[in-house]
Design a protein around this nucleic acid. Structure first.
Lengths: 158, 158
DNA sequence: GATAATAGTTATTGACTATAACTATAATTC
DNA sequence: GAATTATAGTTATAGTCAATAACTATTATC
């Protein structure tokens, strides 16, 4: 059994149908992402960080000496775009960029003390933002969600 | 107990740490989205559709007579950006745009036969794409995932 | 009737992504 | 070991989508 869509009379009293998009996991994914992303953006903006810059910093802190190309791969970004991120991090003295001795094509990226401290603050800020927005999900649900998301991510190599 | 990050020697033999980003639901959301979105994009591209155009069409088909501003609201898009979508749909004769009689500021958008047929094809194409990429998830897992995503979306009004 | 609000439009900007072309170094192949 | 190929980083540029401001026409409100 199916219900035909009713023509709208322009007075806006009929509830809007969601459209076929709602059947897709991708659309639901995007809608949820569009809740968390702007919130995270606002959280790090207070520390004068953009999301890509924050992401770069977060990987460099945990991987002292990482090369830009490795960073790009890890974050699935183009090398050309990672350059801008690194420039920003270096200018703000959050990261140092030194020539590798074993391969002079490469740079070794290392977070400064200042970079580490700022990262800690940024992490805390995004945590607060997610805590607020994920209130309706239990810890188990959040874990389950991440597990399912990671299964999708893993499928990209299929 | 914590493990300090090991300095990298530049020979790339150490596995890269994920960085603090991975702790966030938002990051995992984005990574999964970045698997499904380009696939859906490629699927509808074969029908000469972009994702926003497809989304617009999908809502108009189910809501004959819908106004552009309602469409924008339903898809969480700016009115100014919806105009481009509608232009495209009208030019391709997938949708008709007629003045509302009760409120002459408004347009009434209605899908043509051609629009409905193209939507069916596009829906089928995205379905195939998602079926392939969501193979690792059971039907129950997919349902659970959407349920959790919708809880996040609902939190946007908090 | 004057004022404010809404619908649609246009132009423009910004953020992020993607591509191509280039230089330097290193790895390879003959 | 010289020539070729591949890799790392960079620059410039373009594309996509989202966001803002300013404008006109119409309707609603005071």
């Amino acid at each position: 059994m199916s219900f035909d869509a009713m023509p709208r009379n322009g007075d806006g009293e009929l509830p809007l149908d969601e459209g076929a998009v709602r059947e897709f996991v991708g659309y639901n994914l995007k809608r949820a992402y569009m809740v968390l992303y702007p919130a995270a953006q606002a959280a790090v903006a207070e520390l004068d960080l953009r999301i890509p810059t924050f992401s770069g910093l977060s990987v460099i802190v945990r991987n002292p000496g990482i090369a830009p190309s490795e960073l790009a791969e890890r974050l699935s970004m183009e090398r050309s775009n990672i350059v801008v991120v690194i420039d920003e991090l270096e200018t703000r003295e959050l990261v140092t960029r030194t020539k590798s001795k074993t391969d002079r094509r490469r740079f070794a990226l290392t977070a400064t003390m200042r970079g580490k401290r700022l990262l800690d603050k940024a992490v805390a800020a995004i945590r607060r933002s997610e805590e607020r927005l994920l209130q309706r999900l239990t810890a188990e649900e959040q874990a389950k969600l991440v597990e399912l998301l990671n299964k999708i991510e893993a499928a990209s190599t299929d």
